[in-house]
Amino acid sequence: MPDTANTKSFLDPSTLAALQGLELRAARIVEGYVAGLHRSPYRGFSNEFAEHREYVPGDDLRYVDWKVYGKSDRFYLKQFEEETNLICYLLLDTSESMQYQGPGSPMSKLAYAQCAAAALAHLVLHQRDSAGLVTFDDEVRDLIRPSSSPTQLKQLLRVMEQSATRRKTRTGPIFHDLAERLGRRGIVVVISDLFDDVGPLLAGLKHLRHRRHDVIVLHVLDPAELDFPFQQVTMFKGLEGLGDVVTEPRSLRAAYQKEVQAFVREIRTGCRTQQIDYQLIRTDRPLDAVLRTFLSARKERVK
């Protein structure tokens, strides 16, 4: 079993950036997160036995099927019926704005979002829940229906890795569209920088809620977009065709930060109003916040 310190470091984006491949990164993230917990994050157990799954370190030993062990010399846990019904929809923003990587950031927002999505997919699928993926910019680009099949993870990861970022963001109408298209209710995890009009955005999320989905918003922002650390005169070349701006950042810093904080506050308030879990994610912070948010939401739902 890998040691805690090592595995925990895989939550650190700088360490993750050194790893090649989303699959590996996702596995490491989850490993690192799980190793830090006292108990397995995986779901609790109902009475109705559904199937076995292989034991992983950290699992509760009460649910080890000793009979199977006696027979096979391998550890298996009993899984119960209810949890197999969880469906997780991962909505990954692949617009051009997600391409931004600030000075001093180990990875771009998109790479970070991909890691988060991949980690969540890994976690979900490992529990034999279903996970699906939607990539979007100003349109839905890819939609992988949720499944718990063994090959689902690989497929999801492949789609994530291949997504190109060229277009603007247009979240509102897309959420509306997805609210209609997504079938069974489940947990919808939106991973995006949400650089779009707040009104339509919140309206879209509201629609998702209206369809009885549990929505988690992981608001991914680069530290530079929050702190605005620039010193000298800079030309800011706008992504998504927003134009270029030359300015002296030092004189603008306070005002800019106010604007960003107002934006974040508006979205947070809007989410809270809808009982949507909102988490602001800085791309220089470890990813355990991502997993923690998801798992607590999942617990709420399972209750």
């Binding site: 931004y100 977009e225 070349k237 603008l252 604007e259």
Partner: peptide
């Protein structure tokens, strides 16, 4: 001046 790509132009 230096040139940097920037996503949050709206706020700027």
């Amino acid at each position: 001046y230096r040139e940097v790509p920037w996503a949050a132009v709206t706020f700027l």
